[in-house]
């Protein structure tokens, strides 16, 4: 077991996994039931009062989505106000850049692959979501890259497409696990950054049996197309 407190290495392990998935869908889903997101919980609040439009799921919250599953104790979804424009929701458009190898992505200097195609909205909802906050015993299973992340709080902001995991966040992969004060996933570039990171590589890291098996055609280290 090797323990390294290095942001670069932490990012290289996970960014390679995140970015090396060929054919990862970045286009909006077909409007059929198979692409639906199913959310179950003990209790639910939906506030239509203007200007706030907030849906809160409480107790044993489970989200089953084509891209990722989420478990937590409370999830708050904030919808856009009627006056918000689609441009303001999706944030400023980034200029498309050339694909970079995963190693460069992890260096922190190079920029990630940016898709000009629109990103599928988080947890399958429509484009009117401004933020999603998952709290308490948060677990995120990424079905695409077969990773699992845990923490006490996860915040997704649609304007930046950033997913920020806090509260003793840990990301488990087949190659090891990454811990830090803050794990930030950029859905636009597929870049991952970790504040005060530590990485545990190899077997015996306590992740055996927790992380799903990688896909048959894993693309570790390859740039996203």
């Amino acid at each position: 077991m090797i323990r390294i407190a290095s942001l670069t290495l932490a990012a290289s392990v996970v960014a390679g996994l995140l970015c090396g998935q060929p054919g990862r869908p970045a286009t909006p889903p077909k409007s059929d039931f198979h692409n639906a997101t199913i959310i179950t919980a003990d209790e639910f609040d939906l506030d239509f009062g203007s200007p706030k439009r907030v849906a809160i799921y409480r107790g044993n919250v489970r989200v089953e989505d084509p891209e990722m599953d989420i478990r937590c104790e409370e999830m708050t979804v904030t919808f856009a106000s009627p006056g918000d424009s689609p441009a303001s929701l999706s944030g400023p458009a980034k200029k498309p850049e050339k694909p970079q190898p995963a190693g460069l992505l992890a260096s922190g200097n190079a920029t990630g692959v940016t898709n000009s195609a629109p990103i599928r909205p988080m947890v399958g909802m429509g484009g009117n979501i401004t933020s999603i906050v998952a709290e308490r015993k948060v677990e995120i299973f990424n079905k695409v890259d077969k990773t699992r992340a845990t923490g006490n709080k996860a915040v997704y902001t649609s304007s930046t497409e950033l997913l920020v995991l806090t509260g003793n966040p840990v990301m488990y992969t087949e190659q090891g696990e990454v811990r830090g004060d803050l794990i930030i996933m950029d859905r636009r570039t597929n870049k991952l950054s970790v504040k005060r990171a530590s990485v545990i590589l190899g077997e015996g890291n306590g992740t055996k049996g927790k992380t799903p098996a990688p896909p048959a055609k894993g693309g570790t280290g390859k740039p996203r197309k």
Binding site: S31, D32, F33, N35, A36, T37, I38, I39, T40, A41, D42, E43, F44, D45, L46, D47, F48, G49, S50, Y57, F79, V123, G124, M125, G126, G127, N128, I129
Partner: peptide, 16 residues
């Protein structure tokens, strides 16, 4: 305009 569901909530979302 507040809706509260107390038990066994299940939602299927194709959109918001």
């Amino acid at each position: 305009s507040l809706l509260v569901i107390h038990h066994d909530v299940s939602s299927v979302l194709l959109s918001g």
